[in-house]
Simulated scan of single mutants.
Amino acid sequence: MWPRLYKSTDAVSRVLAWISGGLIFLIAFLQLFEILLRNVANISLSFVWEFAAYMHIAAIFLGLSMTLRTGGHIQVTLLATVMPRVFQLMSTLGGLLFSGYLSFALIQLAWNWGATGRTSGTVDDIPLVIPISFVAFGAVMLTVQLCLRLFHILLGTPTEIQWSSGPSAE
């Protein structure tokens, strides 16, 4: 059961990381396209800058779980080398508490915005439940990865995996 849960969570996290990367490229493409249209045809796409902000925060949160799983988050090397197991356990517990609370708060926020029909209040009047749902899902996946990381630490198994084995992997 546990290996299947690990693999499933890693697979979802990997898909979310690819989506996150795709969103970053989409932001760049949309902004370049908007700038080009504005300069060449004097047409402005009013939604681009607002969508870019929502896609950016969604990309950050959707990429968190795979970043954790591949060891990409910032770590305090001095503390990690002095007492590595204790540091891993304490930092994971602290991260789990914070991430759990954040996930709960974001789910509540998404639920409330969905129930009340809250919109952005701009010309495009975007329902805010859409972007906040992606952010909440990313936070929940980080919380799940932190739970699994805690089990890895307690069992003494490796907590991180390789993102890629290709020539560009660091």
Rank of each mutant, 00 (worst) to 15 (best):
M1Y: 08
M1L: 06
W2Y: 12
P3K: 02
R4P: 00
L5G: 01
K7P: 00
S8Q: 04
S8I: 08
T9D: 02
T9G: 05
D10R: 05
V12Y: 00
V15Y: 07
V15L: 12
V15T: 06
L16P: 01
A17W: 11
A17F: 10
A17R: 01
W18P: 01
S20L: 07
S20I: 07
G22Y: 09
L23T: 07
F25E: 00
I27V: 09
A28L: 14
F29T: 13
F29C: 03
Q31T: 04
E34M: 07
I35D: 01
L36F: 08
L36E: 13
L37M: 15
L37E: 09
R38V: 12
A41C: 14
A41Y: 15
N42F: 15
S44E: 14
L45K: 15
L45G: 10
S46G: 15
S46I: 12
F47D: 00
V48D: 04
E50W: 04
E50P: 09
E50M: 07
F51P: 04
F51L: 15
A52N: 00
Y54T: 03
H56I: 06
I57F: 12
A59Q: 13
A59R: 06
I60K: 04
F61W: 11
L62V: 02
L62C: 05
G63D: 00
S65H: 08
L68F: 07
R69N: 11
R69S: 10
T70G: 11
T70F: 05
T70A: 06
G72W: 03
V76E: 06
T77P: 02
T81E: 15
M83W: 10
P84F: 13
V86G: 00
V86Y: 03
F87C: 09
Q88L: 08
L89K: 02
M90T: 06
S91I: 10
G95E: 14
G95A: 14
L97C: 12
F98H: 00
F98I: 08
S99N: 14
S99K: 08
L102E: 01
L102I: 06
